[in-house]
């Protein structure tokens, strides 16, 4: 029972990480009806930036926000330079562009930082504390706290501020928003920036666990896909709930059912099952189906 509880808590911690990346996917999906296949790679690159800052003697708590700001700027830049020219293209074109972006960023990271896995510092110790008899690490608790904080901040930004309102409006109905003076293109760029920053956080949270290298996010993005799809790809709340469910499920399945090497297959199974049985996920609204 105690071990089970431990698995659940560390599942929640992984879930927080997946939720952050899934939320990034949802933000961009809402902004332009697109799944950003480069989200994981963008997060990985931002994590490398944070690593470089810390390596150069910066304290973790300064490097973290700085890296997030840089990730934000990077996301805006990518939208302006790469995405904007194809904004009105068919979705297939956009998907291919984000794949190109993923490949490009992966290659760039490999070139700049090399392929040797590096250990990434965590501000939380791996020491454990006993909760209801289960041994839970401070690192897991820290990850859960940071993820929760960021998710709440994003929620407040989107739901309680005028900027968030304009971003939602631009995403849902660009033409009508333009007529209200909303600078739609910039709102989309901000959406990319925000997604990039939230995604970067997931990279920085996961790096101490996985070791940092250019392919680090390749599996995490699949878990994030599973989380986003499960929650309903347009729902921020769904991304969070989906992230937690995927995190716990995958952790438990890895511990008790299939073994660690097939955890990824469990995520794949979740994706396929949701898409086939309930394509709108838990919180997505039903869309009009063609044929």
């Amino acid at each position: 029972m105690q071990e089970f509880l431990q698995q659940v808590v560390s599942g929640i911690a992984s879930g927080g990480i997946f939720a952050s990346l899934a939320l990034a996917l949802v933000l961009i999906y809402n902004a332009m009806g697109l799944v950003n296949f480069a989200q994981g790679e963008m997060a990985m690159f931002a994590t490398f930036v944070a690593y470089a800052l810390i390596e150069n003697g910066m304290s973790y708590w300064i490097a973290l926000p700085l890296a997030l700001v840089l990730a934000f700027a990077g996301g805006v830049l990518i939208q302006r330079v790469v995405i904007r020219p194809v904004e009105r293209a068919p979705v297939l074109t956009l998907v291919i562009v984000t794949l190109g972006l993923a490949t490009l960023i992966n290659g760039l990271a490999g070139f700049v930082f090399g392929y040797i896995p590096r250990s990434f510092p965590s501000p939380f110790s791996v020491q454990t504390v006993s909760v209801l008899g289960a041994l839970i690490s401070f690192r897991d608790l820290g990850v859960i706290a940071v993820s929760a904080l960021v998710l709440v901040l994003i929620y407040l930004l989107l739901q309680r501020t005028t900027l968030g309102l304009a971003m939602r409006a631009a995403a849902h109905n660009p033409d009508a928003s333009r007529l209200l003076g909303v600078r739609v293109s910039w709102m989309l760029a901000l959406g990319w920036g925000l997604a990039s920053a939230v995604g970067a956080l997931s990279g920085i949270m996961v790096a101490p666990i996985l070791l940092l290298e250019p392919n680090m996010m390749q599996t995490i993005i699949i878990y994030a896909f599973a989380a986003a799809v499960l929650g309903g790809i347009e729902s921020p709340l769904g991304a969070v709930v989906g992230g937690l469910i995927v995190g716990i499920t995958v952790n438990l399945a890895g511990a008790y059912l299939v073994g660690g090497d097939l955890q990824l297959a469990v995520a794949f199974l979740i994706i396929v099952a949701v898409l086939v049985i309930k394509p709108n996920g838990l919180f997505g609204r039903p869309s009009v189906r063609r044929v």
């Binding site: 790469v82 020219p85 194809v86 293209a89 074109t93 291919i96 562009v97 794949l99 190109g100 972006l101 993923a102 490949t103 490009l104 960023i105 992966n106 290659g107 760039l108 490999g110 070139f111």
Partner: peptide
């Protein structure tokens, strides 16, 4: 050496993006 090391990934990625933008 940048180009050689960055290898196929960078070229492929950049090409994919450029083609989609300029020659779909």
């Amino acid at each position: 050496s940048v180009f050689v090391k960055a290898g196929p990934a960078v070229t492929y990625g950049a090409l994919l993006i450029l083609i989609m933008i300029f020659a779909p």
